[in-house]
């Protein structure tokens, strides 16, 4: 995962970031930090290394600590490397009533990892998350921007198989949506 490649946003990302910053009044550009960090995760292997955060601070012209404070507050930002496919299973209230624990246990068993771990091939990371506002279609999980709802074990099999075959990195702000 660790590479020495230069940390720099793609031209598409820079154009998008510029557009986003313009949404906020003059001098209030710090507001753009959450969208920019999402874009950074899409551009830099799905997680925020200290170097990436420092880079975002330089892009936004703010102190690095302001980025660290924000990045560590919001749970969607990964502060450690994650697999290409981050499986986020909702385990709150209604999803729990509908069998979320089955889903988690099944994925753990199937992939041979525990919650929070990444498979040896770097393909999958399993993470339980709190309510994703999809309670009527529980149990559910999110991969990238996609909600997979009304899960059964067969469905989980199919979804994971598809992602394994595709082999592409999925992030909340999907990479292809950075191009406008």
């Amino acid at each position: 995962m660790a590479t020495n490649k230069e940390i720099k946003f793609s031209d598409d990302a820079l154009a998008l970031i510029e557009k986003i910053i313009k949404r906020y009044p003059e001098g209030k550009h710090k507001s753009a930090i959450l969208p920019i960090l999402h874009i950074a995760q899409a551009e830099f292997d799905g997680w925020l290394s200290p170097e990436v955060m420092d880079y975002v601070a330089s892009v936004l012209k703010i102190q690095p600590i302001e980025v660290y404070e924000v990045a560590t507050f919001y749970t969607m930002f990964n502060l450690k490397p994650v697999g290409k496919c981050l499986i986020e299973v909702c385990h709150t209230g209604p999803c729990w009533l509908m069998g979320a624990e089955d889903v988690v246990r099944y994925i753990e068993k199937k992939l041979g990892i525990k919650n929070g771990e990444t498979t040896a091939d770097g393909m999958f990371t399993l993470k339980t998350v709190e309510c994703l506002a999809s309670c009527g279609t529980a149990p559910m999980m999110q991969i990238g921007e996609t909600y997979h709802e009304n899960l059964t074990l067969e469905k989980v099999d199919t979804i994971l198989e598809e992602h394994r075959n595709a082999g592409v990195r999925r992030t909340h702000w999907e990479k292809e949506k950075i191009k406008s």
Partner: peptide
């Protein structure tokens, strides 16, 4: 300012990261 509050809730801490 190079230090601040990191993480959230129960795990929140003062740190320089």
């Amino acid at each position: 300012r190079v230090h601040g509050v990191l993480n959230r809730g129960w795990d929140a801490e003062i740190s320089t990261y």
